[in-house]
Design a protein around this nucleic acid. Structure first.
Lengths: 270, 270
DNA sequence: GGATTCATCTGGACTATACCAGATAAAATG
DNA sequence: CATTTTATCTGGTATAGTCCAGATGAATCC
C-alpha cells in the first residue's frame, strides 16, 4: 500500500491549512472511499513523520484528530487501526446488547471482570432507591463486538430483590436472568448519556489511552411496579456506537442507508 | 485565587502518574467542589507551565483532557474557561430548543447564519424524499445558551412543501412556523446521534478549535402522513448537553438530582 | 519442541524551543 | 473625546530531540 502524498503536491502546500489537517484529510478520504478497510493497521507514527516530512508530534496530532472523529482507533503500543463500523443503539427499545449486536451481523462477547456484594454508598443508594449501607451487588462487565472491547459497564442491583444473583451465569443477558428468576416482567429504563473522556482506570479496562473520548451512559431501570431494580453505568468507546431514537410510532421504517457504514458527514456546505 | 499545588507536594511526585493527569485532577477537583464556578477564566498556558514547573505542551495536554471531559472549554486565543452546566435534551420529546432551554432556567438565542434555495444533492434528496435537483431550502442557524454558541444546525426542507418559508422570521421556532403556515400538525422525528469531532468550518462557526469533540445529530422529521418534511444536521458542543431518554411511559418522574450540575461521575470503584 | 531471553518496534510522556495570528488593552494621535 | 496605532498577551502550530515501558517476534537455551 502506498500511503504517501506525491511530493510535488507536498511542495505546493502553504501554511493556510495546517499540516496535521492535511494528513487527516488524506487518510479520511482513503477510509471513506473504502481504500482502507476496518482493522487495517496504519503506518507507525515514526514512519508517517518520515514520509510526510513532519515531526512525530504533528503526525500524532493528525492521528488524534482522526481518532476524535471515530475513523481510527489506537491500541496501546501496538499501533493505529481503521475503525470498524458503528453499531446502532436504540436506548428507547428494550433490546439487549447481545441481541442488538447479532441483529446487525456482528459477534457480541461478554467478560465478567468482577462481582461484589457491597454496602451502598450515598450515590448508589439514591440511584437504586435503597438506604445507605444496604447490601447491593456490583457486577463489572466488559462487552465486546467482534472481539474488540467497546463498553465497560457497572451494574448495581438491590441484593434483597435478587438473592443469589451472583451465582447465576452473569455473562448472559441480565434482563433474561431477572425475568426468569425474579419475576420481573417489565423494563422501563431512564437513560442519561453524555459525551465525556475516559479516566485512567476505565481506559485501562477498555484497553485504550486515558483521556480517549467516550460516551457515558447511566441507566436506571424500573419494573412494572415502578420500583428501581437496576442502576447501570456504562462507558462506551465513542467510535463504537450510533444512537438512534424514534419519537412517536411510525409504520414506515426510516431509511438506514444514508447513515450506515463509516461516519461520513456532509461537509460540502459547512 | 491561588491555583498552584504546594511545592512540597509537587516534589513528592514520582513518575507513576503522568504530570498532565495530576494537573487535570487538581483542576477537576476544584471545579467539582465548586471552588471554580462556570465561566471562570483559568490561568494562561504559560502561567500554568511556570507554576507547575512543566512545559507548555504538558500544560496543554492537561487542559485538553479537562476539555474532553467537558469540565472546561476554550475560546480561540482568549483563554480557557470553566464550562457552564449541561442542558438536558430529550430527543424523544418534541420540545423545541428554546422551550427546553427556558424550562431549565437558561436563556436561549438564535442567529440565522444563512438561508439559501438550492438544488438537492444526492444525499439531501434521499434524506428529504425528493428528487435530485429538486429545489430545497437550506437554513443555517447558530443556537446559543446564555450567549454561548452551543450548536450549529443545517435545516433542509422541501421548497415545494413550504413556499415562502425563507421570508418568515427564521429566528423563531421552525416547528411553530411549519404548523402555522403549512398545516403540519404532527412531528415524528427519526434521530441519529454519534460522537465525533468538529471540522474546520463547523469549528469556526461555533467559535471553537477545529478537532474539538462534538455530538453530531441528524434528524429526519415526518408529518402525520409519513411524508418527510424536514432534514436537519446538528453539531453540538460536546460539553453543552446531556441526553435523556425514557423508554416506556411512567407516572413517577425519575430523580434528576443525581445527574444535574457538573459532570461528576462515580469513579471510586472504577 | 517448548520455554526463555533479548533486540527491536511501538506508542506514551516530556523538555525546550520557535514563530504566527487573533484578541486585548494601553498609548499615541487626530 | 473618539479614533487609530501599537505593544503585549493568548492560544495554534510546528520543530527536534529525549527517555520509558509494553508488545512482538526472532534467537537462544534446556
Amino acid at each position: 500500500m502506498n500511503w504517501s502524498i506525491p511530493s510535488n503536491e507536498r511542495s505546493a502546500w502553504d501554511r493556510r491549512v495546517p499540516y496535521y489537517l492535511r494528513i487527516r484529510d488524506h487518510f479520511a478520504s482513503l477510509i471513506e472511499k473504502g481504500a482502507l478497510v476496518p482493522a487495517t493497521k496504519l503506518p507507525s507514527e515514526r514512519q508517517l513523520s518520515h514520509r510526510f516530512e513532519i515531526t512525530r508530534v504533528t503526525a500524532r496530532q493528525a492521528l488524534m484528530q482522526l481518532e476524535a472523529e471515530g475513523l481510527i482507533y489506537r491500541e496501546d503500543r501496538r499501533g493505529w487501526f481503521v475503525s470498524p463500523p458503528r453499531i446502532q443503539y436504540d436506548p428507547a427499545a428494550n433490546v439487549s446488547f447481545s441481541e442488538s449486536v447479532m441483529a446487525q451481523g456482528r459477534t457480541p462477547g461478554t467478560t465478567v471482570l468482577s462481582t461484589e456484594r457491597i454496602a451502598a454508598s450515598a450515590r448508589e443508594s439514591q440511584n437504586l432507591g435503597v438506604k445507605v449501607g444496604d447490601p447491593i451487588f456490583l457486577i463489572r462487565r466488559l462487552r465486546l463486538i467482534d472481539g474488540r472491547a467497546v463498553l465497560l459497564e457497572d451494574i448495581h442491583v438491590d441484593a434483597k430483590r435478587c438473592p443469589g444473583l451472583l451465582d447465576l451465569p452473569l455473562d448472559r443477558s441480565l434482563t433474561e436472568l431477572m425475568s426468569e428468576h425474579y419475576g420481573i416482567s417489565e423494563y422501563r429504563p431512564h437513560i442519561i448519556m453524555r459525551p465525556t473522556a475516559l479516566g485512567e482506570s476505565q481506559a485501562k479496562a477498555l484497553g485504550v489511552a486515558p483521556g480517549a473520548p467516550s460516551l457515558y451512559l447511566s441507566r436506571i431501570i424500573y419494573d412494572q411496579f415502578d420500583n428501581i431494580i437496576e442502576f447501570d453505568q456504562e462507558f462506551w468507546r465513542h467510535d463504537a456506537l450510533e444512537i438512534c431514537v424514534d419519537a412517536g410510532h411510525r409504520n414506515v421504517s426510516p431509511m438506514q442507508g444514508d447513515e450506515a457504514g463509516h461516519p461520513v458527514v456532509d461537509n460540502r456546505r459547512l
